[in-house]
């Protein structure tokens, strides 16, 4: 039986990841901002077979609260095997272009709040002498595109941060996993027309659990996004700038 900490458990992917661990009988500590949905998830995970479920409220933009909230979680769980960091929003690109304030707010939610949490988490796992830090970023971080570069740049920042953390913690037994999902059918993307490239949160969640198990460094989910993004990254500028991507 493992101990899992999930930050942003109300996100569709994180919720499914938590359910996967619950099914295996693992113990969970879940954090989110919306109280009513958090309570729903706690009961749900218990019925689905979780060993023990505790929860706490966390507003990721309240940076000062981070350390106390994490201290409490680590104190309650003792040892934590895996931390899943999943909070985030999908910004309205047009609104970000029109207002620096909106753009910075989105960067705060999707990048700097994560940097703050990861700094604390890395130190905790390091002193614990092991564990996995699994963070959901996005394929959007692989190349800036006009359709969502604010979101993309936030995710790119987290990805590079994770790369460095992985290097630092390599000899400490802590695995750092960067999870880059492609298009996922969630409430966050409900207004998009769905095609063949779209995956269900359940599929992505199963991929995450398996990548944690196999101590991967970077994983694209579903797998074919690795190939798509390789093509997007390698597209020469003179072609790329003409696309509508």
């Amino acid at each position: 039986m493992k101990s899992i900490l999930v930050i942003g458990v109300t996100s569709a992917i994180a919720k499914e990841v938590a359910r996967n661990y619950a099914r295996q009988g693992d113990s969970l500590y879940v954090l989110a901002r919306a109280k009513d949905r958090l309570e729903q998830i706690v009961e749900d995970l218990r019925v689905r077979g979780a060993g023990a479920v505790s929860s706490g409220l966390l507003d990721v933009c309240d940076f000062d609260s981070h350390i106390a909230t994490l201290d409490k979680a680590f104190a309650a769980m003792g040892h934590i095997d895996t931390v899943i960091v999943a909070h985030g929003t999908l910004p309205d690109q047009a609104a970000c272009e029109a207002s620096a304030e909106v753009a910075l707010k989105e960067i705060q939610i999707n990048a700097t709040s994560t940097v703050s949490l990861l700094t604390h988490l890395a130190n905790k796992l390091e002193s614990q002498g092991g564990g996995t830090l699994a963070v959901i970023t996005s394929v959007a971080g692989d190349r800036g595109r006009k359709s969502n570069y604010v979101y993309g740049s936030a995710k790119a920042m987290v990805s590079v941060f994770l790369e460095g953390l992985r290097h630092r913690l390599y000899r400490k037994g802590v695995n750092v996993l960067d999870i880059r999902p492609g298009f996922v059918d969630t409430p966050m993307t409900k207004n998009f027309a769905k095609g063949l490239l779209w995956a269900q949160p359940e599929t992505v969640a199963a991929g995450i659990v398996s990548a944690v198990e196999r101590r991967k460094n970077v994983v694209y989910l579903p797998f074919f996004w690795a190939w798509i993004m390789r093509a997007v990254r390698n597209l020469p500028d003179f072609l790329f700038l003409r696309t509508g991507l």
Partner: peptide
């Protein structure tokens, strides 16, 4: 689709409540 929560399950009596 997202009203997919279990509320309670009593494995002794077999009473189940879900969304």
């Amino acid at each position: 689709a997202y009203l997919d929560y279990f509320r309670s399950f009593d494995a002794e009596s077999g009473m189940l409540r879900c969304a």
